[in-house]
Computed example of a mutant assay.
Amino acid sequence: MRYSFRQLEVFLAAAQTQNITKAASSLAMSQSAASSALKELESQFNIQLFDRVGKRLQLNELGRLFRPQVEALLAQARELEQGLSRHTEAGALKVGATLTIGNYLAVGVMAKYMKSQPHARVSLEVANTRTIAKRVNDFELDIGLIEGELQSPDLEVIPWCPDELVVFCSPEHPLASQGSLNDEDLLNTTWIMREPGSGTRQTFERGMHGLLPDIEILLELEHTEAIKRAVETNLGIGCLSQVCLADAFRRGSLVPLKVPEHRRFDRQFYFILHKQKYRSAGIARWMELCRAL
């Protein structure tokens, strides 16, 4: 074999950090050792994987071509190492989830995963759909759980389970006493919304087609709990997943509003994986536990 796993690790670290010193630090190596490993990898095959601009390393076309294959090869090697040393089928997993899924579903799955795999470690990153998709695309996350529709040539989008958004307000809001709303009601009120780039905002805008230019959005917030608190204080009405509103509806601190039937807020939750990502036993187990919810 004309290359070493260490050389491949340096290549990936350099691709992620765009700097050989930072790459060396992330691998607990000296800068000179990391630089030598990368130069040896390139010279052994008479190739160049990076464009060097000052101290910055930028993946060139050839580097971008090989990065997914290197990522998959090292993922398999890590899984083999975990299996040999810990005698376990599933190991460490880096999961990304959008806010609704991360705050209300993923933590429970994580607990079950770690309970069924005592030696496993799971890291969970919570962000909006756009951020999670980018992190999966850059191989910084093993799998993503998103609530927004996504088109990407490099990512596999796999349906997981259905969800629905609900329009809601505080019990004291003037609309709370109405049996059902019409489009005029939706236009003549103030909204507290998720930020652009989130799956929830995407579904809301699809359901509100034809009204979007004229609706009044008072606040755009990144966190569902902040939106719920703002609506509870009567700053406006909101639209969030039924998953994160169930407890508030049971307590009576928030109430659902019935919107016109042609305003549809149904959607899907999805798994996303890079098409070149090695499907480890850990990824398979995670998806199995998610589907069992």
Rank of each mutant, 00 (worst) to 15 (best):
residue 282 G to M: 11
residue 37 A to S: 12
residue 200 T to K: 08
residue 142 D to L: 02
residue 238 G to W: 05
residue 214 D to W: 08
residue 203 T to E: 06
residue 62 L to V: 07
residue 293 L to E: 15
residue 209 H to M: 06
residue 122 V to R: 02
residue 128 N to I: 05
residue 51 D to Y: 10
residue 60 N to P: 03
residue 88 T to Q: 14
residue 113 Y to N: 13
residue 256 P to L: 04
residue 33 A to Y: 03
residue 48 Q to D: 13
residue 20 I to D: 03
residue 190 T to S: 11
residue 149 E to V: 09
residue 223 H to I: 09
residue 160 W to R: 12
residue 75 A to W: 00
residue 222 E to H: 08
residue 60 N to E: 02
residue 131 T to G: 00
residue 76 Q to Y: 03
residue 74 L to D: 04
residue 106 A to G: 04
residue 33 A to N: 11
residue 67 R to N: 05
residue 143 I to G: 05
residue 48 Q to V: 12
residue 66 F to T: 08
residue 109 V to R: 11
residue 168 F to Y: 14
residue 227 I to C: 06
residue 255 V to D: 04
residue 199 G to I: 02
residue 124 L to A: 11
residue 215 I to T: 00
residue 33 A to C: 00
residue 235 L to A: 02
residue 227 I to Q: 07
residue 239 C to I: 11
residue 28 A to V: 05
residue 222 E to D: 10
residue 259 V to L: 03
residue 184 E to R: 14
residue 184 E to N: 14
residue 185 D to K: 03
residue 129 T to P: 00
residue 155 L to A: 03
residue 240 L to H: 08
residue 128 N to F: 03
residue 133 A to W: 01
residue 108 G to D: 15
residue 119 H to N: 12
residue 87 H to A: 07
residue 240 L to F: 04
residue 145 L to C: 12
residue 26 S to W: 05
residue 288 E to C: 14
residue 49 L to M: 03
residue 97 A to M: 12
residue 129 T to E: 05
residue 155 L to T: 05
residue 177 S to D: 12
residue 239 C to T: 02
residue 123 S to T: 15
residue 264 R to I: 13
residue 159 P to Q: 08
residue 127 A to C: 01
residue 146 I to N: 03
residue 227 I to P: 04
residue 199 G to K: 06
residue 98 T to I: 10
residue 235 L to I: 04
residue 239 C to D: 01
residue 195 E to L: 03
residue 139 F to P: 00
residue 241 S to P: 07
residue 39 K to M: 09
residue 207 G to F: 02
residue 214 D to R: 12
residue 202 Q to P: 06
residue 218 L to N: 06
residue 197 G to Q: 00
residue 36 S to R: 13
residue 79 E to Y: 00
residue 16 Q to E: 14
residue 107 V to S: 14
residue 232 E to N: 06
residue 115 K to D: 14
residue 215 I to D: 01
residue 135 R to F: 00
residue 162 P to W: 00
residue 214 D to N: 11
residue 241 S to V: 06
residue 18 Q to G: 15
residue 105 L to M: 15
residue 149 E to H: 11
residue 192 I to E: 06
residue 24 A to F: 09
residue 179 G to N: 14
residue 11 F to L: 15
residue 26 S to C: 08
residue 203 T to L: 10
residue 254 L to Q: 07
residue 19 N to M: 10
residue 105 L to I: 15
residue 47 I to E: 09
residue 75 A to R: 07
residue 25 S to L: 10
residue 76 Q to M: 13
residue 9 E to G: 02
residue 174 P to Y: 13
residue 136 V to Q: 01
residue 215 I to P: 01
residue 14 A to G: 10
residue 283 I to N: 10
residue 227 I to H: 06
residue 165 L to F: 03
residue 138 D to Q: 08
residue 194 R to F: 00
residue 179 G to M: 13
residue 145 L to N: 09
residue 112 K to Q: 15
residue 247 D to N: 11
residue 230 A to F: 06
residue 258 K to Y: 01
residue 114 M to I: 14
residue 233 T to N: 07
residue 238 G to A: 07
residue 102 G to L: 11
residue 158 I to T: 13
residue 92 A to R: 13
residue 109 V to K: 12
